[in-house]
């Protein structure tokens, strides 16, 4: 260390020196605190579900009593069943629409328009979307709220996210691969099925899982659109101000655990997108080298991890 540098060190602000030494610890503490902050409510919810007294407070004991009540609660079973049916339908419809739209998006010239229509709903308040649709249906079209209006509400919530996930996974598909398939005489369906689909399959799966979880927990829109019978979040809302239904914590705890498992799965799948693309590329390269006289004009771009 030269004399000049030593001199500079001496004159530096003590805070600067402190951060140089302990910066990483401060960072970890800071981020750790906010992870805890954000995770505390869902984790507490699981803890509270075991509280014997049924009061919303820090658990004082361990009891499975409310799980027992939950299992025997007819209304809750109905709500659970309805939520599951809706979530499955939403998964199917939203993922299908998102996939078609994403494929279309890659080809269309009107990219701004398509992306605007697909993504903007995320930026507008859900409760306004919910009651404006319900009022249009009710006042102008004479449609009473029913199962299908509810499904529409769930699909409109899940669709933008499903679209984004599928679109992201499609960025691993190089346009040339599809063009090559088409050049070799494959029709668009074969090109999709044999080239694109295997690569984006993890993306489609995670879009489906996301749609399921988003639908399962949807509240803002459903509140204005639900017909006969409660969904799970509506069931919870209708009892949230009544102190005598602690079984809502039991079912919510189960929901949290289920949602987390599914999301873990979805993420694991998503990380596979890059890997599958890479493997496909390597297989392709291996085959290319086997073909005699195959011209290699340029190195194929390596897919992003």
């Amino acid at each position: 260390m030269s004399a000049a540098e030593t001199a500079r060190t001496v004159h530096r602000h003590p805070l600067e020196v402190f951060f140089e030494k302990h910066g990483m610890k401060v960072w970890k503490g800071f981020v750790g605190f906010f992870i805890l902050y954000v995770l505390l409510p869902p984790l507490l919810l699981v803890a509270i579900s075991f509280e014997p007294s049924g009061v919303v407070r820090m658990p004082t004991g361990f009891s499975l009593k409310w799980y027992d009540v939950m299992i025997n609660d007819q209304a809750l079973q109905g709500a659970l069943l309805k939520s599951i049916i809706l979530a499955f339908l939403t998964t199917f419809v939203a993922t299908f629409l998102a996939l078609q739209a994403a494929i279309g998006f890659r080809k269309t010239k009107h990219k701004t328009l398509v992306i605007a229509v697909m993504i903007l709903p995320i930026f507008l308040p859900g409760i306004i979307q919910g009651f404006s649709l319900s009022i249009v249906l009710n006042q102008f079209l004479g449609v009473e709220r029913n199962f299908w209006t509810e499904l529409a509400g769930h699909v409109m919530w899940a669709l933008p996210f499903a679209f984004l996930v599928v679109l992201t996974s499609m960025s691993s598909v190089h346009r040339e691969w599809v063009l090559a398939a088409l050049d070799l005489g494959a029709n668009p369906w074969r090109a999709f099925k044999d080239i694109e689909y295997p690569i984006i399959k993890p993306g489609i799966t995670s879009a489906a899982i996301f749609s399921f979880v988003l639908s399962f927990n949807e509240f803002n829109r459903t509140f204005y659109l639900y017909g006969l019978g409660e969904t799970l979040p509506i069931y919870v809302w209708n009892r949230i101000f009544v102190a005598t239904s602690p079984q809502t914590f039991a079912i919510s705890a189960l929901t949290v655990i289920l949602s987390l498992t599914l999301i873990g799965l979805a993420t694991w799948y998503l990380t596979r997108v890059g890997r599958v693309a890479k493997e496909t590329l390597q297989e392709g390269l291996a085959e290319q080298q086997d073909v005699p006289g195959a011209e290699r004009t340029r190195e194929p771009a390596v897919a992003d991890g």
Binding site: V31, I35, V38, L39, L40, P41, P42, L44, L45, I48, V56, R57, M58, V213, L214, N217, F219, L232, P233, V236, W237, I240, T248, F249, S252, T255, V256, S259, L260, I263, G264, T267, T271
Partner: peptide, 25 residues
Amino acid sequence: LPLLLLFAVPFLTSYLMRTLSWHAV
């Protein structure tokens, strides 16, 4: 990725009950 996933947890769990849990805190 795991870190980001932890921050995504609230987004994907029941919004009502999560909010009610703050009572206990």
